[in-house]
Write a protein that binds this DNA or RNA. Structure first.
Ligand SMILES: [Mn+2]
Ligand SMILES: [Mn+2]
Ligand SMILES: [Mn+2]
Ligand SMILES: [Mn+2]
Lengths: 151, 151
DNA sequence: ACGGAAATGTAGCCTGTGCTATATTTCCAA
DNA sequence: TTGGAAATATAGCACAGGCTACATTTCCGT
């Protein structure tokens, strides 16, 4: 993103560990996509429930005003994640649907893992809404293995 | 924050579950403090290492430019988390130090738990940088219990 | 069929968080 | 001691993501 993906480092035998800056830069990058992930997941839910996702419903479920939801949908549109016509519902594109599926899977897995290690379901749901966005593919796989390994 | 803390709900026997909007609103609130948490934690680290935290070091470790770090420090100052004089180092106030301690404890606990369930240490460190901010007190307690309950 | 209510859109404001370019200050080595 | 390099500050731009106020469109009950 900012510097090279993984600077080769002069061959001094030291493994190219992730530096502090790498970690923070990674977290910042994720932060900027987290909102889109929540929107696509929610739009998928609403579409399943009602056949379409209306701006008002999106706004209410997210706890924001509708102008805020409307603006976000414009950004989603610009990114090719949704399509919509004025005064009509919002629908996911293939890319948007793919993101929704991916996020939903992550969401469920995080909740399951939290509950498995003893977190009360209510707290697990609450915390997962933020955590889900920061769980890497590697970590996700580890969660799966852990959850499978205890039937 | 936005509406009441927990609306009592007309006494219909239904337990006042956290609604979707509550979860998203919670996540948004946390998102706005996550940056401060990272700064205070980092300033504590630098102060321990070098006796003070210089803007340049803060910026480098976070992977941002120094004007960005400088502006953030102004906000931290306004919030009473740090003190600093122009062209000098940045120091935590008591409130800032308290936040740093709290965040660092959370950070370590999250990393430990991730590793305990099988996440590779490298990935655990990376993901924890984002996850740490979204782990509630309840979840943290559960992590402690889980980690203690295995030797 | 139509008129008011509900939904949606738009304008415009604010703050946060990033950046580059430039000015100022401090520090250090000759 | 002093001049250039390094560090820090400031100005100003951009965009995200909140909000309120107001305009427009759609929907629905009479
Ligand atoms: Mn979420
Ligand atoms: Mn989610
Ligand atoms: Mn962090
Ligand atoms: Mn941290």
């Amino acid at each position: 993103m900012s510097s090279d993906d993984l600077p080769p480092e002069p061959d001094d035998g030291i493994p190219p560990e992730a530096t502090d800056a790498d970690r923070f830069t990674n977290a910042r990058a994720i932060r900027s996509t987290a909102l889109f992930e929540d929107y696509t997941e929610l739009i998928a839910d609403l579409t399943e429930e009602f056949g379409e996702a209306r701006i008002t419903d999106i706004a209410r479920r997210l706890g924001v005003t509708h102008p805020t939801a409307n603006k976000a949908v414009l950004r989603l549109k610009r990114e090719g994640l949704v399509i919509s016509r004025p005064y009509r519902g919002v629908f996911l594109t293939e890319a948007g649907a793919a993101m929704a599926r991916e996020v939903k899977a992550r969401h469920r897995l995080v909740v399951r893992l939290l509950i498995a290690v003893g977190v009360p379901p209510e707290a697990a749901e609450m915390d997962a809404e933020g955590i889900e966005h920061y769980v890497s593919e590697t970590t996700l796989k580890a969660f799966e293995v852990y959850l499978d390994g205890r039937q």
